[in-house]
Structures are given as C-alpha cells and as structure tokens.
Amino acid sequence: MTWDNHFIILILPRLMKGLQITLIATLCSFALAASLGLVIAILEKTTRGIVHFCVSGIAHFIRGTPLLVQLFFLYYLLPYANITLPALACGIAGLGIHYATYLSNVYRSGIEAIPALQWEACTSCNLTRFQTWRYIILPQAIRPVIPVIGNYFIALIKETPLLSSISVMDMMGEASIFGDMHYRYLEPITMVGVLFLVIGLLARGAMILVTTSLSAFRLRYGKPDNGPKISEYSIEMDSFRDTVL
C-alpha cells in the first residue's frame, strides 16, 4: 500500500464535516465537564451525611468505569427507559459527565488548598455563603489549577474518536466509513491523526496564552506606580473574574 494524494482530495470534504462534529463535541462536553465538575466539587465540600455519600459515590463510580461502557450505556440502554437521545447528544453527555468527575477532583484540590483562615476571614466580614464561594474561595481555588484543567481539556480532545463507536460522524467516524467504502485506510487514518495533532497543538497554545495572561494580570496590578484609576480598575477586575469563572 503506497501513499496516494488523490485520496486526500477525496476525503478532505468529509473530514472537514467530521472536524466540525469533533469540535462541537469537544467544546460542548468540555463546557459540561467544567461546570458539572465544579458543581460536584462544591457539593462534596458543602454537603454531609447521605447526600455527600451519594455525590462522591456516584462520582467514584463514573470515574471507575470505562468511558466506552458509559457511552454504550447511554446510547443503547437509555432508549429502554424511553429516553432516546441523538448520538451526538449521548456522546457529549457521556464525555462531559466522565470528565466532570475528573475535573471535580482538580477543583477539589484547589479548594482544599485554600487556608482555613480565608474562610474565617469571610465569616468575620459577614459574607454570605454564596459571596464567600463566588468572590473569595473560587477565584483563589481555580486560578492555580487552570493548567491542570487545560491538560484535561487536551486529553478530552483525544478521547472524542470514541464517539464514532456510537455512530457519531466525527472525524474518526467519517474516516472509517470512507475506509470501509474504498478499502483505503492509510490516508484517512493518517489525516485524522495529523488533524488531531494540529488541534492539540492549537489547544496547547491557547492554554499557554490563558496561563500567561493570568500571571501578567497579577504583575500589572502589582506595581505601585501605575495603579489604574478606580473605574477602569473595577472593569478590569470584573472582566478578570468573568474569565476565571
């Protein structure tokens, strides 16, 4: 079998269609994982007794079973409970929930690194529970774990080909269909690999940008002489908080 550029021209339109699905699946499932993971982490920290047991029990269960099994469960078994979701929705839900349980551990490590004194200072300032979490604990807890979250994001990108096993037509799905039709796998699969490499590098670059802009923020407002005026400072702080949370 020798490399044939002709097949690349043939397959490229299909791969681009698949790329769209891959990107949608990646971004949606990461958004789900990032937000649901935070919810799990906060629930694990704030609940006690039976609720706490259930939350961390379910999280452990999901973390401890293979993603492929969960995807098959959602796609092939949920219809028996009269819940029929499109394949892509199943894939996003499965991937998102699976990674949420990983990310909840990451968030938790960030939350637990906050000294008890910070919580006590919030009480002494008479902040509500919500204010304490939203403005004091989470901004401090999330910023140091952003690089770790970024690594999980990149790992998640590389898990998306699994969705082709539940008939999602992502890049991998398109490539294998093409391969089955033309009995040519060399070009399609190589192209998929290269495209994932490119996406991974782009994601890595984006991560570095995010991380450095966060530390630049700290440096910029740490200097005594160029303290911004109150109004623009507040705007900066607000947009900063929005990017972090």
């Binding site: 006590e120 403005y135 901004p139 401090q140 400072y233 702080m237």
Partner: peptide, 20 residues
C-alpha cells in the same frame, strides 16, 4: 491578618462593605 490575596488592598476594604 486573613487578607484576601487575590484582591487589591483597596478591594480588600471595599468589597466587604459592598457585600454587606
């Protein structure tokens, strides 16, 4: 002290007033 390390000195003093 228990100051909030991610907030400027000014915000350390201003935010609790706003929150309350």
């Amino acid at each position: 002290f228990g100051l909030f390390p991610h907030l400027s000195v000014l915000d350390n003093i201003a935010f609790p007033q706003i929150f309350n």
